[in-house]
Design a protein around this nucleic acid. Structure first.
Lengths: 124, 124
DNA sequence: CCTTTCTATAACTATATGGTTATGGAACAA
DNA sequence: TTGTTCCATAACCATATAGTTATAGAAAGG
């Protein structure tokens, strides 16, 4: 049985939290850092001039958006990236792909064309 | 003036505005509506219970994010979708694609495969 | 002209956000 | 035990956000 094991709700409500979380440059930088591996609060705070409590707050925002998980390692509370909610957000935006038509669009068209016509005729 | 001393992130100032604009469900609904074609303020306001000035405010937020353009048509100020800034946002998120490894990943793989082998033999 | 329609703006309220400093708890080090 | 490190939370502040009502302006209809 494959259950929705995400600790926080998915769906439109979570899009609010995900987009809001991504709207802050400090949080985006934290996520970029976490893409390299889990990091403690101190390690996350190091590159910034803002205080440690501010980083803790940002972490809470990311947690509520489902974008990070916390662990317990001695006194540390390392954060780990959980990127799945971004997939939701990207999916939502992909609805608008046809309005900016970049390479991904072409790729999509190509895929559809190939699926529809494996022989490869070209017309419309 | 103010130098970016944070090593992680470049300008990305517009990402702030884009993600923030997308963080509101009313604004996302407005964008979805605009995907069907341009709409006046009144038409955009119709589906919602909130007031017309609230819609005008939301439009201003979308405008500042570069997600809509306004035109002038008699007394109307129709809004039209401009999705390009979403591409930026998606690009940013695509950096994290490998952490959720979805169909997009497969699509990407397919492209690489097709570019490598234009003949497109199907095997594997 | 006067009226209606469409929209923007001002003024206000309530809440959310992003930051601070101060403090305290939990886990290691001595 | 005492001290130190890591982190969370509380209390506070300034500003931003999302909504409201009221009003005003521009354009079209009479």
């Amino acid at each position: 049985m494959v259950m929705e094991q995400v600790g926080y709700e998915m769906g439109a409500q979570n899009l609010d939290a995900v987009f809001a979380a991504l709207a802050d440059p400090t949080r985006r930088a934290m996520l970029t850092r976490l893409a390299e591996g889990e990091a403690s609060v101190g390690e996350l705070a190091a590159p910034f001039k803002i205080s440690q409590p501010a980083i803790s707050k940002h972490l809470k925002v990311l947690e509520k958006a489902g974008l990070v998980e916390r662990a317990i390692d001695e006194q540390r509370r390392p954060a780990r990236l959980k990127a799945e909610p971004m997939a939701e957000a990207v999916e939502w935006m992909n609805y608008f792909k046809r309005f900016w038509g970049d390479s991904f669009d072409q790729l999509d068209e190509l895929l559809v064309k190939l699926q529809a016509e494996p022989k490869g005729g070209q017309d419309e």
